[in-house]
Nucleic acid binder design. Structure first.
Lengths: 176, 176
DNA sequence: ACCTGAACACCGTTCAAGT
DNA sequence: ACCTGAACACCGTTCAAGT
């Protein structure tokens, strides 16, 4: 039994039933193992969830710089974020309600956001603040949408997302 | 023992330790009562948290229409939202990760938002969508800030909040 | 109506013992 | 090193019994 096996099963349980739906005993049962065996690979349930969250956050398919305008790259990045959160809503909700678990600003998605913002001409000391503000704003939409908190189907959500993005892009453009 | 007493004590526990920190047994102990007595006033822990959330959401001090420009009223509303979430971060985080608990669009804060948007000239079918998008965006910032997820002190958070609001206001103005 | 104690079916985790 | 069973200290909740 490896940490990978434990994490991938834990992820599935979190996707199905959220963090409260994940229990060490239930997870052990699925792995056909004594509940206490898990503690030889992982120090606690909280740490396990932290591991799962880190792994999920590493796996967002991020756009690389293809020379497209920053507006397009920002939209592509945000869409990747939305899609990934829709695939793992409980994990992303957990990440954002447990700031101590993961250093947000070190997330791969944040590095990409900073890259795109530099492309947009945001410089030096303003970069961090702009990045924080944008990430907080978009996260609100993403978490809300991922939890089915918005009315309408996927089409309507995507259109609303487009609306929000245009609003933000025009705001960022207005900064410089 | 009244439902009010139960809820106000439950709110204090949630403010201190979040929803997981609130236990029926611990709450009963604080009230000097048998754990099972609570179930004669409240059907379950989940329902109790729902009650607490509803009561908190009703108590946001909302600005009334004082004839000021809609931009100012929107800023005032958003600031009231931020301040209230900072006073009860766990409750607001819970509200927004449990869409089934409270019908968001019926929240008093949403009625006020709609009123301000009508003031801004947003009409008919676009009103609901714009309201949903704006609320989702601002909520992201508010939850993030309320959980201390942003760097810097209150001053810096307020400045970032102002930045986000100007961005959104200019976007809304661009819609019409 | 309201409160209670005992009990049930769960948790996460510690610890001593096994291989 | 890795796994196990028993045990501890908790949970939310049901139920029958009290007043």
């Amino acid at each position: 039994m490896t940490v990978d096996e434990i994490c991938s099963n834990a992820l599935r349980l979190m996707d199905e039933a959220g963090p409260e739906g994940l229990s060490m005993r239930g997870l052990a049962a699925e792995l056909g193992v004594n509940p206490m065996s898990l503690y030889h690979h992982v120090p606690s349930k909280e740490a396990l969830i932290g591991l799962v969250c880190s792994r999920v956050a590493e796996r967002v398919p991020l756009p690389s710089d293809d020379g497209a305008p920053w507006q397009d790259q920002l939209a592509e990045l945000a869409l990747a974020y939305l899609r990934h959160a829709q695939a793992h809503p409980a994990v992303w909700a957990y990440i954002h309600s447990h700031p101590e678990l993961i250093e947000d600003r070190r997330l791969p998605i944040r590095n990409t956001l900073d890259r795109v913002l530099r492309l947009a001409g945001v410089t030096g000391p303003e970069l961090r603040r702009t990045s924080d503000v944008l990430y907080a704003l978009v996260t609100g939409f993403v978490i809300t949408a991922a939890q089915g908190h918005l009315p309408g189907g996927q089409d309507e959500i995507d259109r609303d997302f487009g609306t929000a993005l245009r609003l933000i892009v025009s705001g960022v453009a207005g900064l410089s």
